[in-house]
């Protein structure tokens, strides 16, 4: 911005730094605090007497002999079998991303290369589907799933998540493929390729940046989903988010809030790593729909 060329008055400069710092604290502090506190006992994490206890871990030292303890993690992962939920989330995310990218790539490519009127209508329908809250569809799933006896298992949930993912992924890949010049695959077709050969030999080698971005967002949707997974999975097959929600019912009575805290931190860590490695793709994905208009 040209405004950077002239020096800002000191007051404004200080105000900007103050504001940015405030936002930084608001955004990051809750995570750091909870991460730190997850290695303490409950009376330190919730210390009414003196908040510095949560930092130094006075009670934790009394109970465990040192200022940090993995008791919450042990309770959550082993006693409450959180590893099962972690594994289920892994399976659900992997297959949802794989399937949803495969079919949305084909569909998005077709939409971007078809000049006919119906491709516009299909995009509008996808936009309407995107606006539907997923939970409004759940009561439509339950009856048939009970009847066919496919309720509660992972494959059913994966297929439902793939379908719910489609509208968004389709839009994203459609606008990505539109940026790839049509002449590339047209000329391949002139040289005698079929449409599919042109897609395979010309488009697939250069489509990965867009596909990775779209994949990140379908991963996030599957990873973060609560409405569908809570309703469609049986107790044994629960993924992390519904499992944490069910922790709240049971563990609070037993005084084991720390199990839930440890589980929450365990579920945030993969996301943290994701942001670290894919920050650029996430930002470009968020703005992909916007910059077009």
């Amino acid at each position: 911005m040209a405004a950077n060329n002239i020096k800002k008055p000191l007051g404004l400069q200080l105000f900007i730094y103050g504001f940015v710092l405030l936002w930084l604290i608001l955004a990051a502090f809750p995570f750091l605090w909870t991460f730190w506190g997850s290695f303490k006992v409950e009376l330190d994490f919730f210390s009414k007497a003196d908040w510095t206890n949560a930092i130094s871990g006075v009670r934790t030292q009394v109970v465990h002999g040192k200022a940090f303890t993995g008791a919450g993690y042990e309770g959550a992962w082993i006693q409450e079998e959180f590893w099962r939920a972690f594994r289920n989330t892994g399976i659900v995310c992997f297959f949802t991303v794989l399937t949803s990218l495969t079919i949305a790539t084909l569909g998005g490519y077709a939409l971007s290369r078809s000049g006919f009127r119906y491709s516009f209508w299909l995009l509008i329908i996808a936009l309407i589907f995107r606006a539907l809250p997923p939970i409004t569809l759940v009561s439509g799933y339950l009856l048939p799933f009970f009847q066919w006896n496919i309720w509660g298992i992972l494959p059913t949930t994966i297929i439902v998540l793939v379908a719910i993912n489609q509208p968004f992924t389709l839009w994203m890949l459609h606008s990505f493929f539109q940026k790839i010049p049509k002449e590339l695959d047209e000329s391949a077709k002139v040289d005698g390729c079929t449409q599919f050969q042109a897609f395979r030999n010309v488009i697939i080698p250069i489509m990965w940046p867009g596909v990775i971005t779209a994949g990140l967002f379908s991963f996030l949707l599957a990873y973060n989903d609560f409405a569908v997974t809570a309703m469609l999975l049986s107790q044994d097959n629960q993924t992390m988010v519904p499992k944490i929600a069910s922790f709240m019912g049971t563990t609070q009575v037993e005084g084991n809030v720390m199990f839930a805290v440890a589980a929450v931190v365990s579920a945030v860590v993969p996301l943290f790593i994701l942001v670290m490695f894919f920050q650029r793709q996430l930002v470009s994905g968020l703005t992909a729909g916007a910059v077009k208009g």
Partner: peptide, 8 residues
């Protein structure tokens, strides 16, 4: 477009 249309 068939696979994605079927899913939706």
């Amino acid at each position: 477009f068939l696979p994605t249309a079927m899913a939706m």
